[in-house]
């Protein structure tokens, strides 16, 4: 379970002196939301809205300037190792090693997460089965399709059986069949009781997959509810229209 409270993060504007006015860019501004176990939460927002920065704060890769967040009770600013043990994080670029095979890529992460050689081999075998990677498990990753790369990256994120799983734009660059396959896997994981946080800028995807949606725009959460709740609150029938409505109000709020 993820609980985020008023997360805020600024970055220094490149090429501007620290003392100068407006030297900081506010990437994430007071973001709060929760993501429950056994459900799929979508973080929906346009490019540059602060999705990746939010996920990075939750993954303990950057520390928030203010605000708190916990992953299964562990504080992201405090007990970093405990958070990382609970968390499987797949950043938005697969980032796999091209000279290692799919199996070796996942095995490496298994060993780094503290699994013994035998255990790691078994776990990698399970994941190859679960994610349907048998056809390319022992090929080097250099020539993999985007879908194959994503599967390897997902396998790596799942290798230490984390309770909470965060996926940053996982369907980027995937074709229709690969996207459908990935959705199936994500549903299965939620069905097994995992907490899934999923970021995307694609409406249909979020609408099709997520139980709970947090709309993020310009670093702020514009609205957070179930799909039905969001449609009702914005008085729309389509998530896209609801999104425009919700973020439009967010901008007005900001301007005021």
């Amino acid at each position: 379970m993820i609980v985020a409270n008023d997360l805020r993060k600024c970055f220094k504007r490149p090429g501007v002196r620290k003392s100068a006015k407006n030297s900081d860019i506010v990437a994430v501004d007071n973001v709060s939301f929760t993501a429950d176990d056994g459900s799929i939460t979508g973080l929906l927002g346009p490019n540059g809205a602060g999705k990746s920065t939010t996920l990075r704060m939750l993954a303990t890769l950057v520390s928030p300037d203010s605000g708190t967040a916990t992953i299964d009770g562990a504080d992201v600013s405090g007990d970093v190792l405990a958070v990382r043990k609970q968390l499987g994080f797949m950043p938005h670029n697969a980032g796999i090693y091209p000279r290692l095979s799919a199996r070796e890529n996942i095995h490496y992460y298994a060993r780094l997460c503290g699994l013994g050689k035998q255990q790691a081999q078994e776990r990698v075998g399970q994941l190859i089965e679960q994610l349907d990677m048998k056809g390319f498990a022992d090929r080097r990753a250099a020539g993999f399709s985007q879908g194959q790369k994503t599967k390897v990256a997902l396998g790596r994120a799942l290798v230490h059986r984390p309770q909470t799983i965060m996926l940053d734009e996982p369907t980027n660059g995937l074709d229709v069949m690969a996207t459908r396959g990935l959705r199936e896997i994500i549903r299965q994981l939620a069905g097994d009781g995992h907490c899934i946080l999923f970021s995307s800028h694609i409406m249909q995807e979020v609408a099709a997959l997520c139980d709970h949606i947090a709309i993020i725009s310009a670093g702020r959460i514009a609205m957070e509810d179930t799909l039905q709740g969001i449609l009702t609150r914005t008085d729309q029938t389509d998530l896209e229209d609801a999104f425009v409505q919700a973020t439009g109000s967010a901008t007005t709020e900001q301007d005021v």
Partner: peptide
């Protein structure tokens, strides 16, 4: 550059 550092750093190791 390969962007494999981000997932690596999010693993439970120092």
């Amino acid at each position: 550059e390969r962007q494999s550092l981000e997932p690596l750093l999010s693993l439970p190791l120092s």
